[in-house]
Nucleic acid binder design. Structure first.
Length: 843
RNA sequence: CCCGGAGUGGCGGAAUGGCAGACGCGAUCGACUCAAAAUCGAUUGUCCGCAAGGGCGUGAGGGUUCGAAUCCCUCCUCCGGGACCA
């Protein structure tokens, strides 16, 4: 044991707060937004201030921060802001249940989470922080809303909400149980139609389907595409037939993707909410129809939409006339037709639609086949015939019989169009965005209801419409704004008469649809953002966050960006260039982490025990970032050991391990010069790999590569090689590569090296990312695996510049190979991949 | 039912047409210690074998290829999302 000067142990908790304070002092994380050089906007989804940061927040933020630091070392002017998505239901639920003020509850949580975020040592620019429940932020939600209103992009319409007689409007998660009762009072929840505010996002459906120039994960694009749900077809105008109880002649529009099957329509179905249901109901059927419609209204969505539920419905006692052949077909009301899609009415073609088939079977309605493969026309159908076979033609379709199905469909639509009875049409599943919430804790919608002028926008100069600070729920979930006289009563800005404020607030997805623009000038008083900064810094270069937002938030934000563009506020079409979705950290039980399940992990405890750097590195090391997985702290010790080892390598290069005879001895056959070359090769090869691993978000492999390099250095510790320039170079590279992932220990060891060399301190984080020296990586010999019939049998070592012929000769000269060949000649010798591997083929 | 993702040692995972199991955890043995912790070293897919060596092996089955965890087909399981969208 030659190690007499014992070094201190690696103690993260002693060094991390010190560097965090120093970085703050030097304002190292405040981005100079005015500087035009190499801007790199790295955005991570801002958290909801639920109370405590949990390990899942660290899992999102840690690699994002490493990436920010990596880009900064590449000379980029990196902007990494953070904020809080501070409006929303949990605060209000806590307020109603626990009697807190939602604002105080939220702000307390934010304070705690700020402290926790700081303990991570992330390079967040806190000077850019945004908190959405502050008037400074939400007034611009209001201002943007007014611009959309002027442009006709915001409008008001009736729509149903879940309504509790005691607690008013309920959110989806506030409706509980199969019997649909209120989460607070247990009363039965009903549907109620309210006038509510919408944003006209369906206008952008086609544009949203264009992902040109967007680097998004493929699954996200697929999910958004499905959500938008574009389908092409025709809109066909049926008319109602005269009957004993009414004159008929109303138009009944339907949307179909299969106009080619129009001759197969044997009945029609209206959604229970369809406006013509009452008119078309025959007096003798009224009681039954009304009961059915009422029952449909109370059904849960899930129950109603359940695919395997048996079809139900009621005949109205009226007929419709098929425009293509004048045929009279009966009209039904059934809840398998959705009011919100297409026209809320369908032509039913049981022969070619599964759902119509099931309905027809149940109600004994005719099933008429109109599409068939040639020669197959008369075959009895025992299920709807939907599949598209080559060469199928129309049958039983009057003058169109015999035409190929797709052409027949086009001709039918064209013919109907000449009579104004149909046209080609496109429908989407995407709906306009309902932004009204009947709730206190959100952005007040800035309009006034005047009995004489109607709906009057709040003038810009009267913004913000402030949310009252004190709030009294009076033991109920009903929006307290509706009782707040001071808030409610205003004078009409147009006529000066008494008027009432709108009491609905905005969906919090509005807040999260533009916050990265606000980060650029969070305190700007005269506009939501600075147009120059916005054009200079956005679209955001890279966005990171959870895949659970694949559709809602990510789609809303894209829509919002297009709306802002259309009212002339920005020039870009898309908010972000590149998106990465990390996976989710689950509890040890494999379930979603939640306080109620008791499977959360408090990061504070882990930081106190191992330090932030170990936790950061461990979260990156766990597995691929997009995968997530159940939380288990078992491996943290290994990562912590790695950092301790780096500590020892840097501070005690000449120490040796007691009890290890190999420690301090060069590997057999290696002289000092060869050892130096081996160290340089290892360091530069690691640098080459780690660089591409960072770029490809392969953080787990990156950490593994650094561990390998540390192991190599550790092996040479205490040997003559540890006193060479090659050692110093390898250590330097190791610290630079470690700096983005484990910023504190890298900074500490870097500063100690500078001090030891008598050089003034500069931060490791201000260093440039090093360059690979290709000459260091080149080796003089290489090892080639030898296979016989695809099975590994031997390995040979050849000169690095050996030709294929050299390699073949070397292989055939090997004793082991000759023994296996046993006098035979290989049928083929494959030297693959430029001499990477040899395969001898013997048949 | 539809769409998407994934199945590799005891565990997390690596290898995306070329040496399966990098790196780490755990485990076993050993060093240090009065002892423990910490640290260090060795071994660790599985079966046969004293060994040399060999057989098997990436959810199952088939195919393409000199060569497949990787590509193709059929199927199974798990996770996420959607779900009567005409």
């Amino acid at each position: 044991m030659t190690d007499t000067t014992r070094i201190e142990r690696y103690d993260a908790t002693a060094i991390e707060p010190r560097w965090q304070a120093r970085w703050d002092e030097l304002a190292m994380h405040e981005t100079d937004l005015a500087a035009a050089r190499d801007r790199y906007y790295l955005l991570t989804m801002y958290p909801y201030p639920s109370g405590d940061l949990h390990i899942g927040h660290w899992y999102i933020v840690t690699p994002t921060d490493a990436l920010a630091r990596f880009q900064r070392m590449h000379g980029k002017n990196v902007f990494l802001p953070i904020g809080f998505d501070a409006f929303g239901l949990p605060a209000e639920n806590a307020a109603i249940k626990g009697g807190f003020n939602p604002r105080e509850w939220t702000m307390r949580n934010i304070d705690n989470m700020r402290r926790q975020f700081r303990s991570m040592g992330a390079m967040f620019d806190w000077s850019a922080e945004v908190v959405t429940c502050e008037p400074e932020y939400y007034q611009w939600n209001q201002w943007l809303f007014l611009r959309f209103l002027e442009a006709g992009l915001a409008y008001r319409a009736k729509s149903p909400v879940d309504w509790c007689p005691n607690d008013g409007t309920l959110a989806r998660e506030q409706v509980e149980g199969a019997d649909r009762h209120c989460w607070r009072c247990g009363a039965k929840v009903e549907k109620r139609d309210l006038e509510q505010w919408y944003l006209r996002v369906t206008k952008y459906a086609d544009e949203l389907l264009d992902y040109g120039g967007l680097d998004f994960p493929e699954p996200i694009k697929v999910m958004q595409t499905n959500w938008i749900g574009r389908s092409e077809g025709g809109e066909i105008v049926f008319t109602t037939a005269p009957s004993a109880h009414h004159r008929g002649g109303e138009e009944l529009r339907v949307f179909t993707t299969r106009p080619d099957t129009l001759f197969g329509a044997t009945f029609m179905v209206l959604a229970p909410e369809h406006p013509l249901v009452a008119t078309l109901t025959a007096p003798e059927r009224r009681a039954e129809v009304e009961a059915y419609v009422a029952q449909a209204a109370t059904r849960t969505e899930i129950d109603r939409l359940s695919t395997d539920r048996e079809k139900t419905g009621v005949a109205l006692g009226s007929d419709a006339i098929n425009p293509v052949n004048g045929e009279r077909i009966p009209i039904f009301v059934a809840d398998y037709v959705l009011a919100g899609y297409g026209t809320g009415a369908i032509m039913a073609v049981p022969a070619h639609d599964e759902r119509d088939f099931a309905f027809a079977r149940k109600f004994g309605l005719p099933i008429r086949r109109v599409v068939a493969a040639p020669g197959d026309e008369s075959a009895e159908l025992d299920a709807a015939y939907i599949a598209h076979a080559a060469g199928e033609v129309l049958v039983n379709s009057g003058p169109y019989s015999g035409l190929p199905a797709d052409e027949g469909g086009r001709r039918i639509v064209a013919e109907l169009q000449t009579r104004d009875a149909g046209k080609a049409a496109v429908t989407y599943r995407l709906r306009d965005w309902l932004i009204s919430r009947q709730r206190y804790w959100g952005t007040p919608i800035p309009v006034i209801h005047c009995p004489t002028c109607g709906i009057v926008p709040v003038p810009d100069e009267d913004l913000p419409v402030l949310l009252p600070h004190t709030v009294d729920y009076e033991g109920s979930g009903v929006n307290p704004l509706t009782r707040d006289e001071a808030f409610l009563n205003v004078t009409c800005p147009r006529c000066g008469g008494p008027a009432k404020r709108e009491t609905d607030t905005m969906d919090t997805f509005v807040d999260s649809s533009w916050y990265w623009y606000r980060y650029l000038s969070p305190h700007k008083a005269e506009a939501p953002f600075d147009p120059d900064l916005v054009e200079g810094w956005t679209p955001v270069e890279q966005y990171t966050g959870g895949a659970e937002h694949a559709v809602m938030h990510l789609l809303y934000a894209r829509e919002f960006t297009k709306m802002m563009r259309d009212v002339g506020l920005i020039q870009q079409n898309e908010p972000w260039k590149r998106l990465f979705n990390q996976g989710q950290i689950l509890g040890a039980d494999g379930e979603r982490m939640s306080k109620s399940r008791g499977n959360t992990q408090d990061p504070d405890d882990l930081v106190a025990r191992y330090g932030a750097d170990s936790i950061r590195l461990f979260l990156m090391f766990m597995g691929p970032w997009d995968q997530g997985g159940p939380w288990s702290p078992t491996g943290i010790g290994g990562v912590h050991r790695f950092l301790s080892r780096v500590w020892t390598i840097v501070l005690d290069p000449h120490g040796r391990e007691a009890g290890d005879p190999e420690s301090g001895v060069l590997p057999a056959g290696q002289a000092e010069a060869e050892a130096g070359a081996a160290l340089r090769a290892a360091a530069h090869r690691t640098l080459r790999d780690v660089t591409t691993d960072y770029e490809g978000f392969r953080f787990n492999v990156m950490v593994a590569k650094l561990m390998e390099l540390a192991n190599t250095l550790f092996r040479y510790r205490g040997t003559a090689a540890a006193a060479t320039p090659a050692w110093d170079e390898a250590v330097r590279l190791l610290l630079l590569m470690l700096a983005p992932a484990a910023p504190h220990i890298a900074e500490e060891l870097w500063s100690r090296r500078l001090a030891a060399a008598g050089v003034p301190w500069t931060s490791v984080h201000a260093e440039s990312w090093p360059e690979v020296d290709p000459s260091a990586v080149i080796e003089s010999t290489r090892e080639i695996p030898v296979q016989v019939n695809g099975k590994l049998r031997d390995k040979i070592v050849v000169a690095a510049d050996a030709t294929n012929a050299d390699i073949e000769a070397a292989v055939l000269a090997r004793d082991r190979v000759r023994a296996i060949l046993d006098g035979r000649t290989p049928d083929r010798i494959v030297v693959a991949g430029g001499g990477k591997l040899v395969n001898l083929v013997i048949r």
